[in-house]
Nucleic acid binder design. Structure first.
Lengths: 395, 395
DNA sequence: GATCTTTTTTCGAAACTTAGATTATCTTCT
DNA sequence: AGAAGATAATCTAAGTTTCGAAAAAAGATC
């Protein structure tokens, strides 16, 4: 019952323009004529609106297409060079900065290694700021053309200008990444949990594409989920929704690094799986170890499938989504070999009705999609808040 | 990424009119002047819009209020007699039909007893249709003035015109309640799960009021939940979202009547609690038995609190709501005595961040609110789809 | 009764979409 | 080669809607 927003006649324009742009981005290239059909707007409106967008060079012409004996259609598409988005992946071992054009083609990247147990916020912030300069210089893009910077970080990210981060593994508690970066750059910032940015990538460009309501499940060392209904992500009142990894599946069960007991993460998190199987967990080589374990026929694998199935079933019962996408490096590893078993386990533990309505699929994007997803936050902003004309660089 | 809807300038009007009406309903009576502040619309717009609504007699004047030396404000409010809503509660033992005006004041009711194990759909449909006639005759309201009929039924309700119902306890599987009723009346119908209509009542008129995002948890013999974000209820792709009772909290745990194992309902459902305590469950007298058990100091009570806490914690972690409302007859019974313990148990099993953002409160409406909530579905429709002027009865 | 104060209505302007007419551009038939 | 036909895109006029400002309404105060 939040106070609804008043609408004025200009919001109509804004909304329609955003819709047109979004349509063109995902279904483009398309002719003006196609757009009238796709958007439901009248030909006149499409014409004036595309005119505006063309003169702002947000969209460009993309060749012609013959019609059976009439004026040929001229195709339009979003100008990938209208602006650029930067995505940053802050992980345990590295900080990676990538530069994308609006078509999400990678133009440049740079990576800084982090020494383990040396996660100084200010150092990382310096890496990010330096990385931004480097990728821009590499690609020869002036910073005025960058629409924003998305940053994927570990832990819980609180909303607000400061983007306070709580990440136990990094020893961060209330670290103001937002204000630290804002001190060094004036570019618009979008900070979110790295798993969630990866999910964002999967949702927009991977297996989640086209689903009206979906849950993207992310399994790595940690475990999380994104719930999307009608295209919008469930964020929760303090933006920490989706902590799927810490729902309890066994009351009084295994201890979890969050301090609780019986968390799902304590059974299906990569670290937890290996620990349960008694595999020596060297700090590196987890991926290999897990891959090896999966082929070993260990009973732990079967157990893991059951727990994962239960976790998915809980989502199915509670959210009743159209699609569940399994992602994260450990999730992909598990899914590759065991997807049918996982599906069965989920079915065994959920109600028939909602289970029948849900398809469980594997993510298509690798675990490297964190930066891509972070950049997608910028893209999302660009597509929804209808952009005005670029102010040309003074001079 | 569902196809977004085009907007035309008339949608603006519709939206603003709906917003104004909603504001007036919840914050009324209010003067035109107050409304400009509350809605953010200009005085001019409020004036023309209230003019329309007044001449349609959707709203009426409600006295004046002096101002410090100026023209006195005339107060406006929604006309409670503009139309009427009927709410129906289909339960194990009875079918109850209630008539409300738009202010949700009950004007008439009628109840039909059901013999246990005699849940013939057609009989129940006949009871409902007869009940509608009876309450209308009692209150002297012509049926043209009824805006719709809301029906709360057990089990899972599938969307669509037929309103297919799956209710194991009634032995219903795919019962087309919607089309059965539509054969006997031309009034608009809204069919939903009874627990959900009760939640709807709690959300609109009980403890959920004013919360932007909330979860309403319903514990009776069965267990369910409604998740509300930004004022809209999460329904899921096949409208069966919110099956909180069948999330698994103990892998391989107690058998549930759904056929699964370790369901939450198998621990905190009223029937399950009594069974675990070894209380003889006569078909009647459950409420008394449960109330007695709660005072008995049985260890089962403490266990129940723990399981309930886990269930709530899972919601908190996953959804991160602003408020959780505990309802349902068993939920109210538990909460009355044990709310602090329940809160503690929820806190013990959820992450600190989201837990701190959530307040856990007790429902205010009794278990009789099913029919009220069903009628609220009609009210919701009335307030959101801006109603046109009533076509006066021919004559 | 004149003046002040506050509320409500009226009026013209600006923004937006639409339907229908018009112009542009290419194909095909004679 | 030129006219006719067909399809695409633009232009024009009309109809909504909200908004700001000014005017009108209605009572309080001196």
């Amino acid at each position: 019952m939040a106070t609804p927003q008043r609408r004025t006649v200009r919001d109509v324009r804004k909304g329609n323009r955003a819709m047109l742009l979004r349509t063109l981005y995902f279904d483009g290239p398309a002719s003006r004529n196609d757009l009238t059909a796709l958007t439901g707007l009248s030909a006149a409106t499409v014409s004036t609106m595309t005119g505006d967008l063309l003169s702002d060079s947000i969209i460009v012409e993309a060749g012609q297409v013959d019609s059976d004996g009439g004026r040929p259609r001229v195709l339009l598409r979003v100008n990938p060079r209208y602006g650029y988005a930067i995505g940053v992946d802050v992980a345990e071992t590295h900080v990676r900065v990538e530069l994308f054009d609006l078509g999400m083609t990678e133009l440049a990247r740079v990576e800084y290694a982090l020494r383990p147990a040396r996660h100084d916020v200010e150092l990382i912030a310096r890496h990010i700021l330096a990385g931004i300069d480097v990728v821009l210089a590499d690609a020869g893009i002036p910073s005025e053309q960058v629409l924003g910077v998305g940053v994927g970080v570990p832990g819980i990210v609180e909303s607000g200008a400061d983007a306070l981060i709580h990440a136990k593994t990094f020893g961060w508690d209330g670290v103001p990444m937002g204000s630290l970066l804002r001190a060094g750059t004036s570019l618009p910032l979008f900070v979110d949990n790295g798993a969630k940015t990866m999910g964002q990538a999967e949702l927009w460009f991977g297996s989640g594409r086209g689903a009206g309501s979906a849950v993207i499940v992310l399994i790595g060392s940690g475990v999380g989920a994104m719930v999307i209904t009608d295209g919008v992500t469930l964020r929760g009142v303090s933006r920490s929704a989706g902590e799927w990894g810490h729902i309890k599946v066994v009351v009084g069960g295994r201890s979890c690094r969050c301090g609780g007991q019986g968390c799902l993460e304590a059974y299906i998190g990569a670290e937890a799986i290996l620990a349960r199987a008694g595999v020596e967990t060297r700090t590196s080589g987890w991926q290999e170890a897990l891959a090896q374990l999966l082929t070993s026929g260990s009973p732990v694998v079967e157990e893991t499938v059951t727990y994962l199935g239960v976790g998915l079933a809980n989502l199915i019962n509670l959210v009743n989504p159209e699609r569940i996408v399994i992602g994260g490096w450990a999730g992909l590893l598990l899914g590759e070999r065991l997807l049918p078993d996982i599906r069965r386990a989920a079915g065994d533990n959920s109600l028939a009705q909602p289970f029948a309505a849900t398809s469980i699929v594997l993510g298509r994007l690798g675990p490297d999609a964190v930066a891509l997803g972070a950049a997608t936050l910028v893209l999302e902003q660009f597509l929804t808040s209808t952009p005005a004309a670029r102010i040309p660089a003074a001079g």
